[in-house]
């Protein structure tokens, strides 16, 4: 007879795994990826492929040759980082910049802290913000949907002029700086309906709010994430910009405009909910989400950048250890008063 195994309880496991969660998020991103390919064509394909392949490759190389630890690329987290990074980049971005972004995301954002589970900041956002600061021109060259579909390798100045434009947020910022009123600017921009389906300039994966919401439903059904972070981020942005809009509708755009444009949906559903860099307790998650919402609006409305979701998430990532230290989950029997004997 073979020897009996002795181990502490429990002796059964629920069967959940890191892989299941990571690939679950990747599946949830597929609708948005499809929309991106539909609107931006070749550019989206090149950017996504380059980003995913280089992220996986860098993770493998670093683990195999630099750290000399068992490689964990099969767990899907590098693919996810690559996808999210691609979703945060405009689709005319040159391949070499994407590779640099991937290296920063994986190498500095993740591996330098000890790999999956140890990174205080969302790796994809670290890569994205690094690129935004280092290559501001390329990172804000926004292709127009449909018109940019077949141009990536033949970008002459003529084609560039014809197929790029400002994002709604940038147009809004510029318009207000030039003294136009919100409604004047809105007339030039796509309707909310078009925005919901992603008919506007922006990063590869962030434009199609509707597709991202399908992903959210999937994540919630599969219990990969809970509602706390997405709802608190989107909710707080909606409420905060709503208040501003009511105070002065001429200067402050409507809350619907704010949640449909830029990276709010992508950020709230996929970036802020990154397991590693978000808080552990439900109360903590709500505080974190509201923090992201408030900082995003502050940057968008009062800062010099038209968009602030990435910065807001990174700033709140930094607060996560503090949140976890002081905000604990509700304990059993904590708030219930004992009966009088």
């Amino acid at each position: 007879m073979n020897t009996l195994t002795v181990s502490p309880s429990p002796h059964v496991h629920g069967g959940d795994s890191v892989k299941k969660n990571m690939y679950g998020v990747v599946i949830a991103l597929l609708p948005a990826l499809a929309a991106s390919l539909y609107y931006f064509g070749i550019g989206a394909l090149v950017v996504t492929l380059t980003s995913v392949v280089s992220c996986v490759l860098f993770e493998w190389l670093i683990q195999k040759y630099l750290l000399r630890v068992p490689t964990t690329v099969s767990d899907g987290s590098a693919i996810l980082t690559g996808l999210l990074l691609a979703f945060n980049m405009p689709t005319y971005l040159p391949i070499w910049i994407i590779i640099i972004g991937s290296l920063v995301a994986i190498g500095i954002g993740k591996m330098s802290f000890g790999g999956l589970g140890n990174n205080p900041f969302n790796p994809a956002l670290v890569g994205r913000v690094f690129l935004l600061i280092s290559f501001p021109v390329q990172m804000t060259l926004w292709p127009k949907p449909f018109e940019s579909r077949f141009s990536y390798f033949n970008l002459t100045p003529d084609i560039l002029d014809a197929t790029t434009g400002a994002t709604p947020l940038a147009a809004m910022k510029e318009g207000i700086a030039n003294g136009e009123t919100v409604s004047q600017i809105m007339d030039k921009l796509p309707s909310f309906n078009e925005m919901f389906f992603g008919l506007m300039g922006g990063s590869a994966g962030e434009v199609a709010a509707g597709m991202l919401l399908i992903g959210l439903v999937y994540l919630l059904l599969k219990k990969i994430i809970t509602w706390h972070i997405p709802v608190s981020v989107i909710g707080s942005i909606f409420i905060f910009t709503g208040i501003l809009h009511v105070v002065d509708p001429l200067v402050y755009a409507s809350p619907v405009f704010h949640i449909l444009t830029g990276g709010v949906m992508l950020g709230a559903i996929f970036m802020a909910t990154d397991y590693v860099s978000s808080p552990m307790s439900n109360k903590g998650m709500i505080l974190y989400g509201v923090g992201i919402g408030v900082i995003t609006v502050l940057i968008r409305v009062f800062g010099s950048y038209p968009e602030g979701v990435s910065f807001a998430i990174l700033i709140m990532n930094g607060f996560v250890p503090l949140i976890d230290r002081y905000i604990k989950p509700k304990r059993f029997g904590e708030s219930v008063k004992p009966l009088k004997a």
């Binding site: 020897t3 009996l4 195994t5 002795v6 181990s7 502490p8």
Partner: peptide, 18 residues
């Protein structure tokens, strides 16, 4: 060896188990 231990691999925990 009569049995195989399959828990957290520290002696302290194994000793508290069996």
């Amino acid at each position: 060896r009569l049995t195989t231990y399959d828990g957290a691999s520290t002696c302290a925990i194994a000793a508290s188990l069996y």
